[in-house]
């Protein structure tokens, strides 16, 4: 028994942990089986101890053995949850992420980890009267956030809807040609960064959570790719990496952060983070700056003079699927 390396066929090479448990030859090794049982009991309380036992039973050499093109390093295999990382752990993680970008894509990237600012809660407002559905935001987002180009992944989905209706069933997100089309209006949908996020509750491993500034983030190293969050999201905001993201070196935005736009591995979920690597430094999100109509507005919900607060105070607001009680931080408005 020396097969601890996740096999390519499992489709979960990127994450490692769960695949290792699933593919271990339990029948062939009593000791390992015992470790698994013990570990299962302790899983809730001490995941770290479980991993250590598992590793002892199986031997480190087995982990290093690689029949898979995207084998998992020991450091990655034993990495803690983002919230438990020490400053030193984070430094090592950043180094690994930068090395991966160098090895896999041949680019030098700079990974940071900006934290929420006290007194700031983000909110977004989008003017449905002005949006013309040109999809500039979709592409600026892909460029900023290093999303896969093949298959093409966009965090923003622009719905073309018949004027005079609010019918999502009748909407089309694959329209082409010149916009705005007569008798149509456009509604871009992206992550609403809910204050009561159903996706966070759906995650079985707490790989996704709400930050203090309201942004719902994902630990890409902790995500097991079960896609429960994707199913739980009423805004279709989450995207899954079915394949290893394909990006040309020239496509890659080198300014990255751990919880937002670093290049994701295959088998994890990702989504809009309000460009937290930009917005936590005071900048506007990429989709906002590219919008030729100025429909997109962003700011601090706690600042009574901010643009979003002025919109909430003076405009007619539409909260998408308000009846679900998700309390989004994304407001549509008309004027």
């Amino acid at each position: 028994m020396s097969e601890l390396t996740p096999s390519c066929g499992s489709g979960a090479c990127g994450c490692g942990q769960s695949a290792a448990v699933a593919t271990a030859g339990i029948d062939e090794n009593e000791e390992l089986a015992a470790a698994l049982v013990r570990g299962g009991e302790q899983l809730q309380s001490s995941r770290r101890a479980f991993m250590t036992q598992l590793a002892t039973a199986a031997g480190t050499a087995a982990v290093a053995a690689s029949g898979c093109s995207t084998s998992v390093s020991w450091e990655q295999f034993t990495q803690k949850h983002y919230k438990e990382l020490t400053a030193e752990d984070k430094r090592k993680l950043i180094e690994r992420v930068e090395k991966r970008a160098r090895d896999q894509y041949g680019v030098e990237v700079e990974v940071s980890d900006p934290q929420p600012t006290p007194g700031v809660e983000f909110a977004y407002a989008l003017n449905l009267s002005y949006c013309i559905g040109c999809r500039r935001c979709e592409y600026a987002c892909a460029q900023e956030n290093n999303t896969s180009r093949d298959p093409e992944m966009h965090y923003i989905r622009v719905l073309q809807i018949e004027k005079g209706t609010m019918s999502l069933e009748g909407s089309d997100s694959y329209y082409e040609g010149s916009v705005p089309a007569p008798d149509k209006y456009y509604m871009p949908v992206q992550c609403h960064q809910c204050d009561n996020p159903p996706c966070v509750r759906a995650c079985p491993v707490t790989a996704t959570w709400k930050e203090k500034d309201g942004v719902v983030v994902i630990d890409y190293d902790w995500c097991i790719g079960c896609r429960y969050c994707e199913a739980a999201c009423p805004y279709w905001a989450r995207r899954f990496n079915f394949a290893e993201p394909k990006l040309r070196p020239s496509d890659i935005n080198p300014k990255q952060s751990l919880l937002s736009n670093r290049i994701r591995p295959m088998g994890v979920v990702e989504k809009c983070t309000f460009c937290l690597h930009r917005t936590r430094e005071g900048r506007y999100p990429a989709c906002l700056e590219v919008c030729p109509t100025g429909s997109r507005k962003f700011g601090n919900l706690l600042d009574p003079n901010s643009e979003v607060r002025k919109i909430i105070d003076t405009k007619r607001i539409y909260v998408f699927k308000e009846e679900l009680g998700t309390i989004p931080r994304f407001y549509y408005f008309f004027d």
Binding site: P118, G119, D195, G282, L301, L302, D303, N305
Partner: peptide, 20 residues
């Protein structure tokens, strides 16, 4: 005032009013 959304409102409100 805006209690539901200001779960962690810091007394200092560091950047409030900064965009004046």
């Amino acid at each position: 005032d805006h209690e539901a959304m200001t779960s962690h409102a810091d007394a200092t409100l560091a950047r409030v009013g900064a965009n004046d």
